[in-house]
């Protein structure tokens, strides 16, 4: 579904990604792990088109998209729940969700809204209040639900568990699994590598802008080098 080939990206003159390649197949959860500042967020931003690339290609469903503007990529079916939540603070929870469907004003909108509320009932309770008055965990749920409102084919999740209580982390990772079980394709970025690999089908390890490991999630979890360097085991 998604193929990234030899992708490079930079902030100004500082190169951050060096010829990174990755594929995500229909219906799988792919975990992208790596330490602080490895470039995981930059890679997701480049896939979404909000960060320029300096080289390489991005293919989505076989078509080149690396020069498409960000809004067109959402239209193709790539939605992202960004790092740091990035909710529309002054707007109500429900407005945030409706804006998630900005490119997908179809008959299924009401149903997706109902699904989002079923997945995170607290959001229904708080639907009329400004998003900025939600707690961090609730904002994270809102960011994920907002991305789902676009009915994406590919969902990019950047650190959905960052700063959340363990119970909430489990709830969110369970939600990710159930999305996959319903047929969605997911690229999941996590600093918490073992939790991410535990629910993923395959995994990639990014280190200072380069892909250094890849493989089935189970074998990465079992790999002694991985366990020492990234899993803290």
């Amino acid at each position: 579904m998604l193929t990234v080939e030899g992708l490079s990206s930079a902030y100004g003159r500082i190169a951050v990604l060096h010829e990174v390649s990755l594929t995500v197949a229909q219906g799988e959860i792919v975990a992208l792990v790596g330490s602080n500042g490895a470039g995981k967020t930059t890679l997701l931003r480049t896939i979404s088109g909000v960060q320029p690339l300096t080289g390489g290609r991005i293919l989505f469903d076989g078509a080149r998209i690396e020069h498409m503007p960000a809004h067109a990529r959402v239209g193709l079916g790539i939605a992202q729940s960004p790092e740091g939540r990035q909710v529309f603070g002054p707007l109500s929870v429900e407005d945030n969700l409706r804006l998630g469907a900005f490119r997908r004003q179809d008959a299924g909108l009401a149903e997706r809204l109902a699904q989002a509320y079923a997945m995170f009932p607290i959001l229904r309770e708080k639907r009329a209040i400004p998003a900025m008055s939600l707690s961090g965990g609730q904002q994270q749920m809102l960011a994920i639900a907002r991305a789902l409102m676009a009915a994406p084919k590919l969902l990019l999740l950047d650190e959905p568990s960052l700063g959340l209580a363990p119970l909430l982390v489990d709830q969110i990772l369970n939600a990710v699994v159930s999305l996959r079980d319903r047929g969605m394709t997911i690229l999941l970025v996590e600093q918490n590598a073992s939790a991410a690999l535990a629910i993923a089908d395959r995994g990639y390890v990014l280190e200072t802008g380069r892909m250094v490991h890849q493989g089935a999630a189970q074998s990465l979890l079992a790999d002694p080098r991985m366990r020492a360097a990234y899993l803290g085991l």
Partner: peptide, 17 residues
Amino acid sequence: KAVLATAANRLAARLVG
């Protein structure tokens, strides 16, 4: 609402399309 959303958070506005 898209105008208000762009005012509130331009990155997020781009990410929702």
